[in-house]
Every structure is written in C-alpha cells, then in structure tokens.
Design a protein around this nucleic acid. Structure first.
Lengths: 225, 225
DNA sequence: TCGAGCCTAGTTGCATACAACTTTTTAAAA
DNA sequence: TTTTAAAAAGTTGTATGCAACTAGGCTCGA
C-alpha cells in the first residue's frame, strides 16, 4: 500500500467523521506536515477524492470539501432505485450456492441483532447490511455496475446507518432481505428487483424524514442501503 | 488549462485513435520526453484516466490500456438502457423553451444530412447526435446522472459512430429524436423514457451485429448513442 | 469617501533528483 | 541442462525546490 493510498483513506475518513466540514479547504502543505508526508502523495490522494466526488478542485486555489444538499440525497436515491434492482436482476442469473449461503448467514445475524435495540446493535446491523449488498453486487458480476454504485452510494463504514428507521421499518427491511434471497434461489430476477426497489424506496423515505427534521450535510452521507 | 489537462486529453485521444493499443503500457518517462513535460503532470493525467476506466494501474509497474470485450459492450448498453431513459424522464419536468429549440435545430440538421449518405455525412450526424444527447443530459439537471453517463459511454468524438446502421435504422433513429421532442414538449416523461429505451436498444442491436462480424476492441468504443 | 491598480502573502502547478520496488537477466552450482 | 540466487536495469513512488497563479489588502488618485 502506497503513501497516497493511506493519505486517501485518512482524508476520506476525516470527511466522513466531520473532521473536515463541508466548504472547508484541505491544504496540501498543512496535512502533509501533520501526517509527515510530502505534498506529492497528498496531491494524488486529493485528486482521487475529487474524481470520487468528495471534494472539488478550485484551480490554483485548492481542494474544497463538498457539501450535501437535500437535492443531492434525492439524486442519489433516484439513481439507486434504478441501479440496485439491476444488481439483483443480474445476480439472479449468476449467483452461486456459496454466495446464497453467505447471504443467508448475514440475514440470520441481522435478524438476531434485531432482538436487541441498543445503539451498538444498530451499528452492527448497518455493517452487516453493507456486506449483504456487497455480496449481491459481487454476484451481479458487472464491474461497471459495481463502480457506479460505489461512486454514488459512498456509505461510510462508520455510524449513523439505520438509526432513522422505526422498529417497523427495520423489521420490514429484514423481510426484504429474506424475500430477495428466496427470489434469487428461484432465479426470479424481476421479483428480486421489485423487492429491492421497495427496499431502496423505504430507505429513501426514512432518510428524507430524518433530513427534514435535522441537519443535512453529514446525515446525508450516512444514507443506508 | 493546466499541463495535466492537456496531457490527459492527448493520451485519451491516442487511446481512441488506436495509437496506444489495448494491453500496452503507457510509460511516464517516454511520453513525458515526447511531449516535453515532466513526469508530474503525466502521472496526474494517468491517474485520472485510471479513475475514468481507460487504463488500469498496476502497482509499481505502470499504466496499462484496458481492452474491451464483447461482454464490456453488453454491460455498457445494459446500463445505458437504465440511465438514458431516466435522463429524459427528468428532463420532461425541467426542460426550457430554449433547450427544446436547440433540440429541434439539431434534429433538423440531422435529418437534412440523412438525404446524403456519404461517410462525411454519417460522421456529421454522429456529432450532432452526441450534441442532442448532451442537451438532454443538461436538461435533466442531475450532475450525478451526467457524470455516470460520461464515465460509462465514453464516446470518442472521432469516427465510426452510426456507421453500423442500415438506412432503415438510421431513419428510425431520427424518428426517435422527433418523438422524444414531442413527448418533452407535453412533459410526458414516461413516454419520452419509453422511446429513449427503444432508441438505446436499437443502437445496441446495430452495435452487436457489427461486433459479431468484425474486430471488437476498438469498434466497441465507438458505441453510438 | 470611493474606486482602480498594484503589491504581497499564500497556495497550487511543475520540474527534478532520489528512493523503493519489480522484473529480467545472468551467473554459478547442482 | 536445470534450478536458484543475486544483481542489474528499468519503472514507479516520494521529497523538495522553484515557478505561476490567485486573492486580499494597501496605496494612490479622483
């Protein structure tokens, strides 16, 4: 792993954590001195963050952390509603036994955690949920589709995911997972796609309700699948 | 415009032209010496090309130009069939008079060129067609959707577009343009989306027929909208 | 007091030298 | 002859110094 890779992940994590707030500039020299790297790997990391859409480059003036508006969140969900069903549509034709097994394990673990309802359990569920979606994307076997979703969704591995859900919504979400698995076993791509569409629209509703009340900029990024 | 920008465009153009063939390595020192730049802007250009999906970075070994398989082309069309209808679905709610006017102009010019059927006319049509789609994407007012399509479609400004079409297909394609405009005027997003879907599927058919016969690697990139 | 032009501070953009890593070649030993 | 290890060549990765550019403040003039 190169220095640029490390710097990339550090800066990205800091943006997610709110260390760098939206609109602030990330100075090459400053962070370079702090992390004890030269400006070269910092520059490369920033350029990658620019092409990932985390920061925007102002020519000759630096890299500014982008802010998220309600409209941005809407846009992301609009695209996910298209792309994530396509993931399972493809996966239905291609998925292997072993992958179905892992999906089942993940669903079991998530449901077990649903009994509890403390903060930590919710964080755990969010983590497992991300793995669930990652497994589906892998089963879809489309590098481009994977790339598009990765650049769009930008889920932090960290917190906040699933916290907007009511208990009812949470249980419903678990049902979706089960039903998607059943559809995939039967290789019913359209069925799986329909459920996934509902799954995303439900997430969208929960997210929107939250954003209407509270702050937007950071909550936006914790958009949950 | 910075040096890195220039180098980026030059390398990209060379990949499109076939100057750099698939699988070959683009050496930083070599091209730097040739274009009389230092390795720094070359590196930056290459990194951008990597994140655009034109080349792949092999750690400590360089940037290799990616090749296109039939499967890659399939993947691209599969995504365009999802995303391009979404473009007009959004555009129907947002498009302005002036944009509709420009779309109409473009359609007129393309149809005029359809009378002729020499090579140059076909090239011209391809160019205008790209402008047509760009105008639609602009009207959709979704930066993310725009970015996704730009990274996926990768149409070279150059040649080969529309050359796979039979005369019948070409005329049909012109009809699609007209019908999309009509639907947009009436703000009928779903109608416009349906035509666009057919438009892309038709392009896919023409492209696939071509790839079955001839070479793939470069023809693939000339995928026409 | 207001405005225009200039200047200075600060930042990014680029060039170059060196370090690290990977691959290939070559030579020696089995 | 084959295998293995070492070294040598070539490439990318990083550090650093200088150049170019931008923004904000300051001075000078109206």
């Amino acid at each position: 792993m190169t220095a640029a890779d490390r710097v990339y992940q550090i800066i990205k994590q800091r943006i997610l954590n709110g260390w760098y707030t939206a609109g602030s500039y990330v100075r090459e020299a400053a962070i370079g001195e702090e992390l004890d790297y030269s400006r070269t790997p910092i520059r490369e990391a920033l350029r990658r963050l620019v092409s990932d859409g985390w920061v925007e480059a102002i020519p000759h003036h630096g890299a500014r952390v982008v802010g998220w508006t309600q409209q941005d969140v809407e846009e992301v969900f609009e695209l996910r509603v298209l792309l994530e069903p396509q993931v399972v549509r493809r996966a239905a034709k291609r998925i292997h036994e072993s992958q179905l097994g892992r999906l089942n394990d993940l669903a079991n673990q998530m449901e077990a955690l649903c009994q509890r309802s403390d903060e930590e359990a919710v964080d755990q569920i969010a983590l497992l949920n991300n793995q669930f979606h990652a497994e589906l994307v892998a089963a879809a076997e489309s590098p481009r589709l994977q790339r598009l979703l990765e650049t769009i969704v930008q889920v932090p591995v960290s917190r906040r995911s699933f916290h907007h859900y009511t208990r009812e919504e949470l249980l419903s979400s678990m049902q979706h997972h089960r039903e998607i698995i059943r559809a995939l076993i039967l290789q019913e791509g359209e069925w799986a796609a329909a459920i996934m569409r509902a799954h995303i629209l439900a997430a969208r509703t929960a997210q929107m309700r939250q954003n209407k009340h509270g702050n937007c900029s950071n909550a936006a990024r914790s958009a949950v699948r």
